[in-house]
Simulated scan of single mutants.
Amino acid sequence: MSEHTIKATGRNVEGKGASRRLRRAAQLPAIVYGGSAAPQAIQIEHETIWLASHHEWFYSSILNLDVDGKVEQVLLRDMQRHPYKQLIMHLDFQRVDASQTLRTKVQLRFLDQEKSVAGKTSGVVVMHELTEVEVSCLPKDLPEAIDVDLSALEIGQVVHLSDLKLPAGVEIPALKLGKEHDVAVVVAKHGKEEAEEIAAPETAEVPATKAAKKDDK
């Protein structure tokens, strides 16, 4: 697991006015909470976070948060973005205990789809039903992403959660809840089939509606 360090500074002044002043100074308000310590308000250079936000590791890796020289391991738990400007408004970090199992969502990274039979066949649609999955593991085992090898994907094939190859020490809690939770991750089907499935409910409702109107008379 790669290590990534985010440098921050503690802040004593909170509130909307203080946050606006920080943003005008190209600083980002944030908070770190959890563990045995009290929640702490911090500030980080916006550019640092903006650049980090373009990488998968920022969302699912254990981060080393350096606040005024004191380093804590944390996970990003929430990120608020501006509705239309390229600005991040606020961050929430949660402290991580190296000895305790954690649950968090990890991105799925789809590989070699274009090399597969399904990927090469005209008219076949490969749908990514999930783009992330919740995992359970110790902090040291948390992967930045889970690779999904689609190089052997066939037409009509469905890749389920149980088909994913997980790194050592990593589990998917949903799979312990029963077969109905073993949902599809990837589905490869002809585009015509997908269109028919979408249209089917609409065509099925027409006779029922007419019958209901006839009974009302």
Rank of each mutant, 00 (worst) to 15 (best):
residue 88 I to G: 02
residue 22 L to V: 02
residue 133 V to L: 05
residue 139 P to H: 08
residue 75 L to K: 05
residue 60 S to E: 06
residue 136 S to N: 02
residue 25 A to N: 08
residue 106 V to H: 10
residue 108 L to N: 10
residue 175 L to H: 15
residue 192 K to R: 11
residue 3 E to G: 09
residue 24 R to V: 01
residue 96 V to S: 06
residue 37 A to W: 05
residue 97 D to T: 00
residue 122 S to T: 06
residue 217 K to H: 04
residue 8 A to D: 03
residue 5 T to A: 01
residue 175 L to N: 15
residue 124 V to T: 00
residue 186 V to W: 08
residue 76 L to M: 11
residue 191 G to H: 15
residue 200 A to E: 01
residue 80 Q to V: 09
residue 29 P to L: 12
residue 17 G to T: 11
residue 143 P to G: 08
residue 119 G to I: 09
residue 170 V to W: 05
residue 52 A to Y: 03
residue 40 Q to S: 07
residue 37 A to Y: 07
residue 89 M to A: 12
residue 81 R to V: 12
residue 10 G to C: 08
residue 32 V to P: 10
residue 40 Q to G: 08
residue 199 A to I: 10
residue 105 K to E: 13
residue 70 K to Q: 11
residue 176 K to I: 10
residue 193 E to K: 05
residue 58 F to N: 09
residue 181 H to M: 13
residue 126 V to A: 03
residue 133 V to M: 05
residue 29 P to K: 09
residue 9 T to Y: 09
residue 33 Y to E: 01
residue 91 L to N: 01
residue 137 C to L: 09
residue 38 A to T: 12
residue 149 D to H: 14
residue 9 T to I: 04
residue 111 L to H: 02
residue 107 Q to K: 15
residue 181 H to K: 13
residue 14 E to M: 00
residue 129 E to S: 01
residue 46 H to I: 01
residue 136 S to Y: 03
residue 38 A to I: 09
residue 201 P to T: 00
residue 63 L to V: 08
residue 28 L to P: 06
residue 85 K to F: 04
residue 92 D to H: 10
residue 17 G to D: 08
residue 140 K to P: 07
residue 56 E to K: 15
